[in-house]
Each structure stands twice: as C-alpha cells, then as structure tokens.
Simulated scan of single mutants.
Amino acid sequence: MNGKVGVGVAIYQAPDSNALDIAGRVASEIKEVEATLPSGLKIDLVYDTTEFVKMSIQDVIITLIQAFLLVVLVIFIFLQNWRTTVIPLIAIPVALIGAMEFAFLFGFSINNLTLFGLILATGLVVDDAIVIVESCTEKIQKQGMTAREAAIASMNDLSGATIATSLVLMAVFIPVAFFPGFTGKLYQQFALIIAFAIVVSTFNALSFSPSMAGILLGPAQPMGGPFGWFFDKFNRFFFWLSDRFYQWVQFFIKSVTSFWGCSWPGHWQQSLWMTLPATDRKSLPKPISNLPSPEAHLPPLRRALLNSG
C-alpha cells in the first residue's frame, strides 16, 4: 500500500445489521489496536462504503429541513397570522416524531427511504390542521363565535371528513408495503413511515389542533409594517388571479352549452321527450321555463373560490 508492504483486512456487513453502527465500532477498535502496535506499524482505513451513506443521509436531512421551512412559509403567506400558523407548524414535528416512534416499534432503521418518506409526509401532515384552523377562523370572523365555540363547531363539521381523507391517503400508501419480492422489501419502510405519519397527524387534527385553536385564535387584527404591505399586494394578486379563473370557468361553460346548440333547460326537456314512448308524450307537463341556467350557479362558485383562498 503506497509502495510499502501491508496486510489487507476486509470487514463485511452482516444481514440485518446497521452499516453506520459497524463503521463506528470498527473505527473505535482501530484506535484501540493502534495503541498496542510496535513502532513503525500503523493502520489505515483505505475504503469505507459508509461515507456515501453518511453524505446521502446528510443531504436528505437538509432537504427535510428545507421542506419544513417551505411548508411553514406557505402556511404563513396564506393564513397571514402567526396564531393560525403556529397550530399547523406544531403539527409537523408532532407527526414526524410520532411516525419515528412507530418505526422504532416495528424495527425500522433510519435510512434514505425512511427519511425520504418523512420529507414527503411533511407536506401531507399539515392538511388536516390547516382545514380545521381555517374553519375555526371563518366561524370566529364571520359568525361571531368565540374561539372555543368555533373549535367545537368545526370539529362537529369536519371530524368525519378528516378521518375520511386520512383513510384515503393511507389506502394509497399501505398496499405498497405488500409488494412481493425485493421491490416490496425496498419500499415497505417508505410506505409505512408515511402511513404512520398520517395516523399521528389525524389524531393530532382531531385532538390537539382544535384545542390549540380554542386557546390561540381570536378576532382578526390588521397587520401593519412590511408584512401588512406584502399581504395587501399578495391578496390583490390572488383575488385578481381568482377573478381570471372565474371568468375562464364561465367562458368554458358557455362554450360547452353553445357547442351543444341548445340551452341547458331545453336540453333536459328534449332528452326527456326523446326517451319516452309516443303514447306517453301527451301526459308530459308543459315546458318549464324557470329552470336555473348555468350562469346562475357561477356567482356561488366565484365566492367559493375566493373564500377558499
């Protein structure tokens, strides 16, 4: 080695062992053995495959932190209140730590796939908390409820929907854990770590989030300073974008009805007329002229779009 006589010793990882743990123990053993060697002899670590693993995990951890900060930034921009931002913000570490607790109970290790699952789960675990906080805020500001009353009313309205959406997400990821062969083993921990995070976030949304909302939330207060200026510009742009989307939907519906070549009520009547036998057509009632047109449903759609922002 390096032009000198040496002896190579290869150390292989046993199945179900942790590569980083083995590398650490080998390094400590090398230090102990070096202290007993005669002068002129030394031990060099020539090739260590765990260096790549360490760098990969470090990059994944940095990505996880970036994803966390981006989620917090997006929540704050759209909710525009630090009180409403704190509640989903706390939901993220609670869900991720809870998922790691489940991973420990199932014997999973921290590797690239489990960390990648945590990155993906970072954006999934805040959905329920955001919906609940937004519902509580709307009831406080528009219906004049207290924070506690708004939290109770929101949970009465959203408990079933929260559980249903979480079950749908879990139904997507859990079957991946049962893939056969090497692929199934490879993605088992990835799929289940996301499912664990969803379970914890659902429990958090049904218990912790409404409790925090009942304590922290209150009447809306205008924000001044740089944040107030930024939010004013952002809201103007967002409402302008929502307006353009509303106009596009209106144009699309009018184009479709024009392509059919008939108005909506007339199309219903014509379809009903063509599906009945000739002997039954005399019993049909007179044409109904006061059926709602498609345009009648557009203002509520526009209001729904604006309120959802």
Rank of each mutant, 00 (worst) to 15 (best):
V168I: 15
W82K: 05
P180E: 12
L217P: 00
V33W: 14
E29V: 11
A10H: 10
R281W: 09
P294E: 09
D243K: 09
A99C: 07
L169G: 00
D243H: 14
A27N: 10
I174H: 02
A67N: 05
L291V: 15
F251D: 08
R244S: 06
P180Q: 13
V26I: 15
P180A: 13
L115Q: 04
Q189P: 01
P265Y: 10
S255T: 15
V26D: 03
I62E: 03
T137G: 02
T85G: 02
M170Q: 03
A177E: 04
V7I: 14
S159P: 00
G184M: 09
K282H: 09
S154L: 03
E138T: 13
P175W: 11
F106L: 12
L284Y: 10
P210I: 15
F231R: 03
K254I: 13
E34R: 12
L217A: 02
F239C: 03
R25V: 14
A220F: 12
L301D: 01
A164L: 11
F203Q: 01
E34M: 12
S258G: 07
Q247L: 13
Q80G: 01
L291N: 04
L105N: 08
N112H: 05
A91W: 05
F208P: 00
M145P: 00
R236C: 04
A161G: 07
G144Q: 07
L192M: 12
L113C: 03
I97Q: 03
I193T: 09
T63P: 00
G6S: 13
I90P: 00
F238N: 02
Y47E: 09
I97W: 08
L89T: 14
F106A: 06
N112D: 06
M170R: 05
L105I: 15
V131Y: 06
F196H: 03
L45F: 10
D44N: 11
E295C: 03
A191L: 12
S28F: 14
F239R: 09
F179W: 11
P300Y: 14
I152W: 05
F182V: 14
G266N: 11
P226V: 15
T84V: 08
N290P: 01
F238C: 04
L96F: 07
P299F: 12
S28D: 13
V199F: 12
V126K: 02
L113T: 08
T122Y: 06
I163E: 00
V26W: 07
D127F: 11
T165W: 06
T36A: 10
A177M: 08
I11R: 06
L20K: 05
M212F: 09
M155T: 03
K54S: 07
A164S: 06
F251H: 06
D59H: 11
Y187E: 06
M55Y: 10
C136E: 02
S258N: 12
S263P: 02
F179C: 03
N18V: 12
A19V: 15
I132Y: 01
G218V: 14
I61C: 02
D128E: 10
F68Q: 05
F230D: 09
K185G: 08
